[in-house]
Amino acid sequence: MYNWGQYVPGNSIIHRLDPRIKILSVIVLSVFILKVGVNAGLLLSVFMMAVIFMSRLTFQRVITSLRPFIIFFILLFLLHVLFTAGTPIVRFSFCGLSITHEGLYRGLYITWQFMFLVTGASILTMTTVPSDLISGIEGILKPLRPLGVPTHDIAIMLSLALRFVPTFLGEIDRIKKAQMARGANFKKGKMIKKIKNITSLALPIVLSSFRRAEETATAMEGRGYKRGPRTCLRNLRMSSADYIALVLMVAMMTGIQLMAL
C-alpha cells in the first residue's frame, strides 16, 4: 500500500533542486515526449537516464515504481499492435486481426512514451519531500494569485489530503478487522454476500471521516487558520544549481524544437 513513487531520502543534486524547477521540468518533458519524433524521444530518454544516475536512485527502484502500471502498458501495447492497419507480419485468420509492422512500431513507441511519463513523475516524487512538492505547486501557481486563485488554500488542501491518506488507510483496516471479528468475510463467499460486506464497510468509513473532518476543521480554526495569506516554515530559494538546470532545460527544448528532431 502507498508505495508508488514514495520519497526516497537522499542528498543528491536532483534531491536538492528547487521543487518548482523539478515540477516544471517534468511537465515540459512530458509535453515534449508526446509530441516529438523518435530521435528526440531517444535523446530525452538518454537525458532521463542521466537524471536517474544523478539522483542516485537505483534503476531497480525506478523499475519497481513502474510496476503498478504494467497492465496498462501491456494493454496499450496490444491495442496498437492489433489494431493498426499496414503491412501484416502475422495474420490470425480466425478473427481477422493481424500484427503489422506499423502496429508493432507504434505499440512499442507509444508504450515507451508512457513509461517515460510515469518514470518522470516517479523520479519527481521519489526525490522531493511531499511538503516541498506542495510548496513547489504553490510557487508555480503564485502568478495566478492576482486573478483570484486561492493558492494558499490549495496548498493547505493538498497537504491535508496527503497528511490523512495513511490515517484513512489505517481506519479502513481497523473497521475491516472489526467487521471480520464479527464474522464478515471479505475474501470468500458468494458475490452478493461479498458486495454486502464491502458496503457495510463503506458506511462506517464515510461517517467516521466526516466526523474526523469536522473535528479537524474546528482544530484548524482554533489554531488561528483563516482563508488567505499565511507564511511557511521554509521559503523556496533558487540556488545557482537551479538556474543552471533551468538554462539547461530551456536550451535542450529549444534545440529539439529548432532541429525538429
Binding site: S131, S159, L160, R163
Partner: peptide, 11 residues
Amino acid sequence: DNQIVGMTVEE
C-alpha cells in the same frame, strides 16, 4: 490525531 494537520511534525 485530528488536531495534527502537518505532513511532518515540524510543519
